[in-house]
């Protein structure tokens, strides 16, 4: 081979990678927690702070854990999708109110609807840290054994729900 072709070859490889790179989102960081047991917590519930919300209560169920906050604009975007999903009854969505004001969270749910059977309160963001949350909304699919199977970073959209979440939930249910 002509050694003068070397720079061109290197360049072509770089261009291919850059082309692929255009399709990727550099801000989306895959979670190392997928495939691992969901971190335990016991947090007070939003509607009844005396009661505790803990993943241990949900053993044997497939469920979604959705981190949200009233101050988060992405949560507003995904909210109708969650409402729709909750109405369909395919899978329960448990909420985790992340670093929020109690009253504002209540008002927000009242105004836009509440898709969650139970909402936990993560005041200090510690549960968020244990789950590797770095921006709300984030949603985790957790299986019957309490293992995280999928993590959605950013708002859920109908497409992701139909193509990723629901098939995965079905598969996990049948296990």
């Amino acid at each position: 081979m002509n050694r003068f072709l070397l720079p061109l070859s290197i360049f072509i490889v770089v261009v291919i990678f850059l082309g692929v790179g255009l399709k990727l989102n550099p801000r989306e960081i895959p979670s190392p927690l997928v495939g691992k047991v969901a971190p335990d917590f016991s947090q007070p519930q939003l509607y009844d702070p005396a009661k505790v919300f803990s993943p241990a209560d949900l053993k044997g169920k497939v469920w979604l854990l959705n981190f949200w906050a009233s101050w988060c604009s992405g949560c507003r975007t995904e909210h109708p999708v969650l409402m729709e999903l909750a109405k369909s009854g395919e899978v329960p969505i448990y909420g985790m109110d992340y670093k929020d004001q109690h009253d504002e969270a209540m008002t927000w749910l009242k105004r836009w609807g509440n898709p969650y059977p139970v909402v936990g309160v993560d005041d200090a963001g510690r549960v968020g840290i244990n789950y590797g949350v770095y921006g709300v909304p984030e949603t985790y699919v957790i299986d019957k054994q309490g293992v995280i199977r999928y993590k959605q970073i950013g708002p859920l959209d109908p497409d992701t729900v139909a193509k990723k979440i629901l098939p995965l939930v079905k598969q996990l249910e049948s296990q």
């Binding site: 960081i29 979670s31 190392p32 927690l33 840290i129 244990n130 590797g132 770095y134």
Partner: peptide, 8 residues
Amino acid sequence: LVARYGDF
């Protein structure tokens, strides 16, 4: 930190 957020 790595256990939660990865090598990132």
